[in-house]
């Protein structure tokens, strides 16, 4: 059992205010290697603010985001230097945006999109980069003969899979996902979820997934946090929170989903 491992990510008292308005307040949790955590809540509940604070896209007003770095062990990423944090963003961290066009370079071929992170960490052998890009396109079920096509010629689901390949090619240990299946057709969503699940298991990834889709977290997340008005109102095992919600808001959220 993995009970003796130390956390990969330790979030301590993260708060972010927009003037008098609360973005998120006093959020704390530990994420262990290989764990997938879902964050659910309605629009404006602060889940995206929290994700962006953790991923270094927003500076929190208070709190620490301690990441277990490969080189120096646990380090607070909020106070670490920007170059160091951006380096994490290219190596050990990945960020999957809801809209693929926010996470892709639309003017660059699929291969170039996947290869960028490799080149960013110093790979300088064209053949190797192309080989890895080809391999990753295969892993996200994109035909190898599309490698030189631009993402503008791809469907929404393909763009999202390309974004995932681009993010995972450097073997990150922690993936932040912001509504990864939002805006996709239901059939495309299922395929993407299946793919994500396989990748998470095969690569031993840890992930934090923000979504308002409870089906997504049931399939992908081990643990769940429910947010309302910037605060965490309930957290626990995913199936426990979904099947036996304790907080009034969680109960409302779960009961509001249409059964299929």
């Amino acid at each position: 059992m993995s009970a003796d491992l130390s956390p990969l990510l330790s979030v301590k008292g993260i708060s972010k205010y927009y003037g008098a308005h609360i973005g998120c307040a006093d959020v704390s949790f530990d994420l262990y290697p290989g764990e997938v955590m879902g964050i659910v809540g309605e629009s404006g509940s602060g889940k995206s603010t929290l994700l962006n604070c953790m991923a270094g896209h927003l500076a929190p007003d208070a709190g620490e985001v301690v990441f277990d770095t490969r080189a120096d062990g646990p380090k607070d990423t909020v106070t670490m230097s920007e170059p160091e944090r951006r380096m994490l963003g290219r190596t050990d961290w990945a960020f999957v945006h809801q809209h693929a066009r926010d996470g892709l370079r639309m003017g660059v071929s699929a291969g170039g999109n996947v290869g960028e992170r490799l080149m960013a960490v110093g790979e300088r052998h064209y053949g190797d980069i192309r080989g890895k890009a080809t391999d990753w396109l295969g892993r996200v079920e994109i035909d190898a003969d599309r490698i030189d096509d631009r993402p503008t010629t791809f469907s929404g689901g393909m763009q999202q899979r390309l974004q995932i390949a681009r993010n995972l090619v450097t073997g990150p240990r922690l993936v932040f996902m912001d509504e990864p299946t939002g805006g996709l057709d239901v059939s495309v969503q299922a395929r993407l979820l299946d793919l994500l699940r396989g990748l998470v298991r095969d690569m031993g990834l840890s992930a934090i997934i923000v979504t308002h889709d409870l089906a997504v977290v049931r399939l992908l997340a081990d643990r769940l946090m429910v947010m309302k008005s910037g605060r965490v109102v309930e957290s626990g095992l995913t199936d426990q929170v979904l099947d036996d919600p304790q907080h009034a808001y969680s109960q409302l959220l779960v009961s509001s989903v249409l059964q299929v």
Partner: peptide, 11 residues
């Protein structure tokens, strides 16, 4: 802890 429950369910 949730992860202990997950490990228990797994093994």
């Amino acid at each position: 802890e949730p992860r202990a429950v997950i490990a228990l369910r797994r093994e």
